[in-house]
Each structure stands twice: as C-alpha cells, then as structure tokens.
Design a binder for these strands. Structure first.
Lengths: 143, 143
DNA sequence: GGTCAATGATTGATGCATCAATTAATATAC
DNA sequence: GTATATTAATTGATGCATCAATCATTGACC
C-alpha cells in the first residue's frame, strides 16, 4: 500500500468524523432537537408502545442515556412510561398524543434537511452511498 | 419525492450518525486514544510548531476543548506550549520528542484500522466515497 | 498617548454519550 | 422451595464537545 493510498483512507476517516459533527450541529439548528432525541422519538412514532430495552437496541444508544432522555421527555409530556404487567423489570414507552403531534409535525422539516444534505445526489448515488455505509459498518463490526 | 425516497435519505442520515459512533468507539479501542486527541496530535506531527488558534481551525474542534486537550497533553509530556514572542496573545504548540515518538509509533495501528474499515473497497470506490463526503459537506455548509 | 474594538486563550456551565455499580425482578438449576 | 444467574432500569462517575463570559493583548483610530 502506497502512502497516497494510506493517506486517502485516513482522510476518509477524518472526513467522516468531521462531517458527522457538522451534520449533528446543523440538524439540531434546523430541527430544534438533537439527533439522538429525534431518533428516539421517531422510533416511538413507528410503534404503539415498546420496552426501553427494545428502544435502546433500535436507536443504538446506551441504556443510561435512554433513561435520561426518557425522563426528560416524560417531564415534557412527550412520552408515557409504564411497567410491563407481564414482567416488572420492563418499562413500556409510548408517545403521548402531544408527542405524536410534535414528531409528525417535524417530519417536513426533517425531509427538507436530508434533501438539502443530499442535494444533487441521484437515486443511483444514494443507493451506492447507502451500500457503502452498510459495508463499512460490517467491516467495523469485525474489527 | 416518494416516501421510499424520503426514507432512504433519512436512512442515510441515521446510518451516518450511527456508524460514526461505532467508528469512534472502535478507533478508541484500537488506538487507545480518542479520535479528537489523535487528530490534534497528528496535526502537530505534520508541523514543527503552530498556534492554538491555527490548530483549532485545522482539526475543527472548539477552542475550549483544544485548551483542555492541550493542557492534559502538556501534563503528559506529549506537547510543549510557549507564548508567541511576536504577539503575546498567541500560544505556540509543538510535539515533545516523546509525543512525536508516540504519534509516529501509532501510525501503523491507525493504518491497520482504516484498512480494516475500508476492507474490500477498491481504489475507485474509495475515491467515490471521498467525493461524496466532500459533496455532503458542501451541501451541509449551505444549509 | 488614550480609547475602543477585535482577537486568543481560558474558565464556567451545560448537554450528552459511555462504562461501572447497584437494585429489583425474573429465570434457571438443584 | 432455595440459591444462584441473568436481565432491566437507574444512578454515579467520567470524558468531552459546545456556547458564553472573562481577561489580557494587540490593532485601529483620533
């Protein structure tokens, strides 16, 4: 492997990190909530109710952070938590009516955001990018 | 824009965020230091000496974090800081001999990491990915 | 030379992710 | 039935990024 090739790979690593910080920042400016919080709410939007553990697995955020986010969202009246009657260890989470309205209302803004982010990417390129991201994820999971 | 197209764009957003978390975590496991800290040290490795402000601009990390990282690195004997004799506002930073040895020694491990991360990506694909990342960055900067 | 504006570095406050430890509940083994 | 192992959620500690505020220094202007 030549130096230029190594540098290009390192550059990819650097750019991904850097880009992600920019995306996060811009996302929060546009949406008014962080990416993680949006991911949590969006996941809840897609189901009627789910356990905290399942949620944590879906959005890939550590349980401690999940607990803290949910606590705040509950205080804001965005979600409702209750014990699972079949197993008291589980806490079931769902969007409140208010929370559901909010997440629905935010979808247009989000669509605008991602459309801007991928401006000038045709369908083929979007497919390729997705494919690459999946492959990298696979590679990383094997490190 | 159809729903499936919107979903795919959102999926790209989600995957990038998620992937970045995984990369960061694995990077730190493999290298023993965080990506940000490595970026700082690597940038210093490429120059003889530079100001904190220049460093902050190069690695795109906020000044407060730069100060804190450098303070710790100085305490570890990895870097040296001194006032710029031409302008007392500036602090000049350089790698210590020890720090330089360390960063040089870490390059092999880093090369292995990025090679694994991009396993099975040929030259063309790596070029495409870089290109896409640059384009997204451009798009994001215009949001 | 004096005043005000701009700049660099630092400190404080806050948000938030991770890992470790802990408690309570359930599952498993005997 | 009892003891132990496992699991879910929470709390504590830590790392670290950002923004705001502050202080010291320099630049611009009169």
């Amino acid at each position: 492997m030549t130096d230029s090739s190594c540098s290009n790979e390192s550059l990819i690593l650097y750019k991904m990190n850097c880009l992600n910080k920019q995306i996060s920042s811009k996302f929060e400016s546009c949406m008014g909530i962080s990416q993680s919080r949006h991911d949590i709410l969006y996941q809840l939007y897609q189901v009627d109710e789910m356990s905290q553990t399942a949620l944590q697995k879906e959005v890939k955020i550590d349980g401690a952070a999940i607990t803290r986010h949910l606590k705040q969202l509950e205080a804001l009246g965005m979600i409702v938590r209750r014990k699972d009657p079949d197993d008291n260890r589980f806490t079931l989470v769902s969007l409140s009516a208010h929370g559901r309205e909010q997440i629905i209302a935010s979808q247009a803004e989000k669509a605008r955001f991602v459309t801007s982010m991928l401006k000038d990417f045709n369908e083929k390129e979007r497919k390729e990018l997705t494919d690459m991201l999946i492959r990298i994820q696979q590679n990383i999971s094997e490190v």
